[in-house]
């Protein structure tokens, strides 16, 4: 253990144990254990009571304890189009919104990374600033803009582009706008982080060798920006898949997303086992991307640390 920790202030054995142990314990108790309980509840049966589900281990009249694993909740997911439809719809909406985010975010991140150094921090701050204001209220702002007699329609009719108000609110378009708007900073920041470190002499070399700007963009810039693209896409895609507020406030009643269905199962129907089964399914679908993100993110950070 004579590695990089050598120079640190808290590297005594006990200090080190405390530094790692305290956050580790907290996250294990409040982030890891809860998932085990979700898994447990997803296999139990809903019933009236507090809490509203039956225990997995039940003792019957003869004093025999038996394990009751109930997979009906999961069967229901694949049986009822409400659930699998919402799941597929969420993945589709999140994927499209992620691509839209990338299309808008990449040139912005590129522009900031290529701006004069003294402009970079202010431009970045302007990207981050909206993220610090209330997310809920920013989504709410779009209701006033997109509704039939909202600002956008008034303006478009004012300049004579349309005669009839466009129905945007409560459609998938409104959900896309909401997701791109809310998650754009998460796309731009990792993209910026990779683009700002990009060695410009590589592009010059490509130009000297006769590559057109577009070719060198495709063959030099894009491959080098790949870690940022992966991180940005996952930071948008994964939370957007389970998004509740945006589809609830901006989306229509028909295009259900999994986060909203889970919310309804839990709060309106008080069906905790079905809500848990949905959480498990969503988790299984998202664990792969999350692990991928974690590896790309921390590998990146590690190589940074070694360089400095």
């Amino acid at each position: 253990m004579k590695a990089a920790g050598e120079g640190s202030g808290l590297h005594g054995r006990n200090g080190r144990r405390l530094v790692i142990g305290l956050p580790y314990f907290w996250l294990a108790l409040f982030f890891l254990v809860p998932f085990a309980i979700v898994l447990k509840v997803s296999f139990s049966e809903a019933m009236l009571g507090n809490p509203p589900f039956a225990p997995l281990l039940q003792t019957d009249a003869d004093g025999m304890t038996a394990l009751h694993l109930n997979i009906d909740n999961f069967l229901l997911m694949f049986d009822d189009s409400l659930y699998y439809g919402a799941l597929l719809n969420s993945l589709q909406v999140a994927a499209i919104a992620t691509v839209l985010c990338l299309l808008l975010g990449f040139p912005m991140a590129y522009g900031i990374a290529r701006a004069a150094p003294r402009w970079r921090l202010p431009l970045l701050m302007l990207i981050i600033l909206p993220f610090w204001t209330s997310f809920l209220i920013r989504v709410y702002a779009w209701i006033g803009i997109l509704k039939p007699n909202g600002l956008l329609n008034e303006w478009l009719m004012g300049i004579g582009l349309i005669d009839q108000p466009l129905a945007i609110l409560h459609t998938p378009v409104a959900v896309y706008i909401g997701i791109v708007y809310s998650y754009l900073p998460f796309m731009i920041l990792p993209l910026y982080a990779t683009l700002v470190r990009l060695d410009l002499t590589l592009l010059e070399a490509a130009a000297d060798l006769g590559a057109r700007p577009f070719t060198s963009f495709l063959r030099v810039t894009l491959p080098l920006a790949k870690p940022g693209i992966i991180a940005g896409c996952l930071l948008v895609f994964v939370p957007a898949t389970g998004e509740f507020v945006i589809p609830d406030l901006l989306g229509g009643p028909n295009a259900l997303m999994i986060g909203k269905v889970l919310w309804t199962e839990f709060f309106n129907n008080a069906d905790w086992p079905v809500a848990s089964a949905m959480a498990v399914l969503l988790l299984v679908l998202l664990v792969g991307p999350v692990v991928w993100l974690q590896r790309s993110q921390w590998d990146d950070a590690d190589s940074d640390g070694e360089r400095s």
Binding site: Y24, L27, G259, L262, V290
Partner: peptide, 29 residues
Amino acid sequence: RFRRFRGRGLFTTLITGPLVMPDVIIGLS
């Protein structure tokens, strides 16, 4: 600072998890 310690992989997963996990899952669990 601590490049290697037992369970570092799990630790980084536990740190990254809350950043991306959908709110409904964190809340429910």
